[in-house]
Amino acid sequence: MSLPDISAERRKGRAAATNPGSRFDRLQAEAVDDGWERDEDQPPLRTEVSVERPRKVITRNSSPDVGFERSINPYRGCEHGCIYCFARPTHAYLGLSPGLDFETRLVARPEAPARLARELSATSYLPKVIAIGTNTDPYQPIEREHRIMRGILEVLSEFRHPVGIVTKGTLIERDIDILGEMAAAGLTRVGISVTTLERDLARRLEPRVPSPARRLKAIERLAKAGVEVRVMASPMVPGLTDMELERILEAARDAGAVAASWIMLRLPHEVSPLFRDWLETHYPDRAARVMARVREAHGGRDYDPEWGRRMRGQGQYAELIAARFRVAVKRLGLTHDLPPLRTDLFRVPPRPGDQLELF
């Protein structure tokens, strides 16, 4: 159901202004103000968490655009609330809105660690790197209470299974004890996303994400623990953050990052109108220019879903960003490709009652 803008007071700390319907809705409704109930009379939006008991937790991916085949999502929805998040449309599969529902009505999967242990113990299982954080952030604020990611890491460490992690959340520092040991064995590395170094812009783009300076500190602490960190200058928002590319890479290098990557802003499905509304609210003077650049990079559309183009864009502007990235990475001594994580250490740990091998 489409709704009018929710008052700024009610959605304080949230990025989306509305709760639009999804492309899966059979019926579309339009809210009409009948004078009986005013939005300003309603309480502030609070984060609600429901529980899901998954039948399996390792999902398979066949996209040629990403460097992993397997992933795990401890949560559905993300309290970080990044307005540009490409994962917002996935909330529509749950019958929820990609707008404010995505930021406030979350799903936790507390049985994920136990389910993961069962899947890794299958006699037919062959280890490959598992990616975590590729859809929604495993270190979003509710992880502090639910500790699902911590449990998953404990299982992966016990099985000596390789894992790559992507996050904006500094809560990852809590798990440095596990990550440091796994990194020493060649079993893990971390990607930290830094979209901008401007605190005010970050607060609008990513309202519940730690500040850019705080994320740089997380890079430093992970690096000191021996964990290889990739800075992800992602997404590059044309006309808004693209001018910061070199500064982001340099700041991350100085903090201890050893590798870097970038992705062009992409606005699939319901993300596009949400982002355009956000632009008109926060940067009305730049909105037309930003969207013109976005369309220039995506073949005249808000989003080009074609494999090979959706992550980087196309045309002169996209090529310029890619060239700047290549020059900066070379100058700063960062790398784009890191050696593969190890899979040869994988083993199913013995359980109580198991017969141990003699040799």
Results as ranks from 00 to 15, higher is better:
residue 1 M to Y: 03
residue 2 S to L: 05
residue 4 P to C: 04
residue 5 D to M: 09
residue 6 I to P: 09
residue 9 E to Q: 01
residue 15 A to F: 03
residue 17 A to N: 06
residue 17 A to S: 11
residue 20 P to T: 02
residue 20 P to Y: 02
residue 21 G to F: 00
residue 21 G to L: 00
residue 23 R to Q: 00
residue 23 R to D: 00
residue 29 A to S: 09
residue 35 G to L: 00
residue 36 W to A: 06
residue 39 D to F: 05
residue 40 E to C: 03
residue 44 P to E: 02
residue 44 P to H: 01
residue 47 T to Q: 14
residue 47 T to M: 15
residue 52 E to L: 13
residue 56 K to S: 08
residue 56 K to P: 04
residue 56 K to V: 01
residue 59 T to F: 05
residue 60 R to Y: 05
residue 65 D to T: 05
residue 75 Y to T: 12
residue 75 Y to W: 11
residue 77 G to V: 06
residue 77 G to P: 14
residue 79 E to R: 15
residue 82 C to F: 04
residue 86 F to S: 07
residue 90 T to M: 06
residue 91 H to P: 08
residue 94 L to P: 04
residue 95 G to L: 03
residue 99 G to F: 04
residue 100 L to N: 07
residue 100 L to V: 14
residue 103 E to G: 15
residue 105 R to C: 13
residue 106 L to Q: 15
residue 108 A to H: 14
residue 109 R to Y: 12
residue 112 A to D: 07
residue 114 A to W: 05
residue 114 A to K: 06
residue 114 A to T: 05
residue 115 R to L: 03
residue 116 L to S: 07
residue 116 L to A: 07
residue 117 A to Y: 09
residue 120 L to S: 14
residue 128 K to N: 15
residue 129 V to F: 07
residue 131 A to C: 09
residue 134 T to G: 10
residue 140 Q to S: 13
residue 141 P to Y: 09
residue 142 I to W: 12
residue 146 H to C: 14
residue 154 E to S: 09
residue 154 E to A: 10
residue 161 H to R: 12
residue 161 H to G: 08
residue 165 I to L: 08
residue 169 G to N: 11
residue 170 T to A: 11
residue 174 R to Q: 12
residue 178 I to R: 06
residue 181 E to D: 12
residue 188 T to M: 09
residue 188 T to Y: 13
residue 193 S to Y: 13
residue 195 T to W: 10
residue 196 T to V: 02
residue 198 E to S: 08
residue 201 L to H: 00
residue 201 L to S: 01
residue 203 R to W: 10
residue 204 R to A: 07
residue 206 E to P: 05
residue 209 V to R: 13
residue 227 V to I: 08
residue 228 E to C: 06
residue 232 M to Y: 08
residue 235 P to E: 13
residue 235 P to Q: 12
residue 237 V to Y: 01
residue 241 T to A: 15
residue 241 T to H: 08
residue 242 D to K: 03
residue 245 L to E: 14
residue 245 L to H: 11
residue 246 E to N: 14
residue 246 E to M: 10
residue 246 E to W: 09
residue 249 L to Y: 14
residue 251 A to M: 10
residue 253 R to I: 07
residue 255 A to W: 10
residue 258 V to T: 13
residue 262 W to P: 10
residue 262 W to S: 11
residue 263 I to D: 13
residue 265 L to H: 12
residue 267 L to S: 00
residue 273 P to L: 03
residue 278 W to G: 02
residue 281 T to L: 03
residue 282 H to Y: 02
residue 285 D to H: 03
residue 286 R to E: 01
residue 289 R to C: 00
residue 293 R to H: 08
residue 294 V to T: 01
residue 295 R to D: 00
residue 296 E to P: 03
residue 297 A to V: 04
residue 305 P to V: 02
residue 306 E to T: 06
residue 309 R to Y: 07
residue 309 R to Q: 06
residue 321 I to S: 08
residue 322 A to F: 04
residue 322 A to M: 05
residue 325 F to S: 12
residue 327 V to I: 10
residue 327 V to T: 14
residue 330 K to Q: 13
residue 334 L to G: 09
residue 338 L to W: 09
residue 343 T to E: 15
residue 346 F to L: 13
residue 346 F to D: 15
residue 348 V to G: 01
residue 349 P to N: 12
residue 354 D to E: 00
residue 356 L to A: 00
residue 356 L to M: 00
residue 359 F to W: 15
